Simulated assay, not measured.
Amino acid sequence: MAQARRAARLLASMKPDAIIASDLRRASNTAAELAALTGLAVEHDEALRETYAGEWQGLTHEEILHKYGEQYAAWKRGEPVRRGGGELETEVADRAAPVVLRHADLLPEGGTLVVVSHGGTIRTTIGRLLGLEPSSWESLGGLTNCCWSVLGEGARGWRLMEHNAGTLPEPVLGDDD
């Protein structure tokens, strides 16, 4: 919660026009901190939930490697893998990116939308918005808790202006070496 409060103070200075968030508890609570400072309502959308990882759900990194080593290796190479029977990364982008685009279209000219979601969903959505090949989405790297990316619309589409902002470089929980 301290991380969320700190992020909210920094993000409030960007004078957001709207906040959307996953309906899952951690994202919802994080968004509520920003809403309290800005007076904006948070619109929750289940399409912004984290990637469903099937049988991998709830396992530690070590357990996944032990039980699903080959599948994990294929996923890390950028192959389309239903981790533990869960969602493909492209399916996550298929459900989340349209929500972001719909809300961005509602903003006033030059407006700011804050999207509060989860690492995998954020990475796949950014990859989709930037028009990157799905096999390269992993190259965006993870986000540290309560950090953010900044995207802007340019003459040729979306541009990544900042990534993992709000912290000094440090290992991201869940990323491997």
Results as ranks from 00 to 15, higher is better:
S13R: 13
T144F: 03
L140Q: 02
G85C: 14
L160K: 02
R9M: 08
A8D: 00
Q3W: 04
L168W: 11
L168Y: 02
A8K: 01
G154R: 04
K67R: 15
I19D: 01
R82Q: 14
A4K: 02
A4D: 01
K15F: 06
A53T: 05
T38Y: 03
P134E: 03
L101S: 15
L24F: 09
D23Q: 08
A74H: 10
A47N: 14
G157V: 07
A7Y: 00
W56E: 00
G131F: 00
V150A: 12
A47E: 10
E46I: 13
A2E: 10
W158M: 06
V172P: 00
R6A: 13
V114L: 09
E91A: 09
R82I: 10
A2T: 05
G86M: 05
E153I: 13
P108L: 07
S139T: 15
G166Q: 06
M161V: 13
P134R: 02
D176W: 14
L173D: 04
A53H: 12
M161F: 09
T124M: 08
L34N: 02
D23C: 15
K67W: 13
A96W: 04
D175L: 11
A18R: 05
R26S: 12
R5E: 09
N145F: 00
G84S: 09
I122P: 05
L130M: 13
H66R: 15
Y68C: 07
G157C: 10
A165H: 10
V100K: 13
A7E: 01
A7W: 00
L151I: 10
T125M: 09
S28I: 01
V92G: 00
T60S: 15
G69F: 05
G78W: 00
L132E: 08
L37R: 13
A155V: 11
L10I: 14
A12M: 03
L10W: 07
A74P: 05
G141L: 11
T144D: 09
W148L: 07
W158R: 06
H44P: 13
D177N: 12
E33D: 12
R6D: 08
P80V: 03
E91K: 07
V115C: 11
L88Q: 06
P98W: 12
A27Q: 06
E170D: 11
A7K: 00
T125Y: 05
G154H: 02
G54F: 01
L48M: 09
A97E: 10
A21G: 03
W75R: 13
E70S: 14
H163L: 05
R123D: 01
T124Y: 01
V115N: 01
E133H: 12
H103L: 08
S149P: 04
L34R: 08
E33F: 09
T124V: 10
E109C: 07
L40H: 03
C146W: 03
D17N: 10
H118N: 11
R128W: 00
S149Y: 10
A7V: 01
L24G: 08
A104I: 05
E33L: 10
L143G: 01
